[in-house]
């Protein structure tokens, strides 16, 4: 399931040094749970994003493992401390080996 996967991230563009900012992320993905059956009664195989990480300039802020009980279009909200100017790196890991990435720059002024 590598089609139509689009990450969306809401993060502030600027912060003061050491400020705690709230990040909201959403990625479009069916998160097929492996529990559903198609119209012929065959189980639809599991296909989910199993891990999500957020780093700031290479330092980990959140590393989340996801199971099939996470809803379609996984949404995650959390806080990150911004020590300096730099980039927030967001990475989603798909069951099929695909990796989806997004980056947001934060300016400390």
């Amino acid at each position: 399931m590598a089609d139509n996967v689009k990450p969306r991230v809401k993060a502030p563009k600027s912060a003061s040094a050491g400020e705690v900012v709230t990040i909201k992320t959403l990625i479009s993905h069916t998160m097929e749970s492996g529990q559903r059956k198609d119209s012929d009664g065959n189980t639809i195989p599991r296909s989910i994003i199993n891990r999500f990480t957020c780093e700031f300039n290479g330092t980990m802020a959140l590393d989340m493992t996801m199971e099939p009980a996470i809803s379609t279009n996984p949404y995650v909200e959390f806080d990150v401390t911004i020590p300096e100017s730099g980039d927030l790196q967001f990475t989603w890991y798909d069951d099929d080996g695909s990796i989806y990435e997004d980056t947001k720059s934060v300016e400390v002024g």
Partner: peptide
């Protein structure tokens, strides 16, 4: 989720730069 077919939902591991030890998401 104790009553789901598989009970695991998610594990949040907070890193060095976690601004707080809170997180929210949406589950089935």
């Amino acid at each position: 989720a104790m009553g789901n077919p598989t009970p695991g939902v998610a594990t949040f591991n907070f890193g060095e730069l976690a601004g707080s030890t809170m997180a929210s998401t949406r589950i089935r």
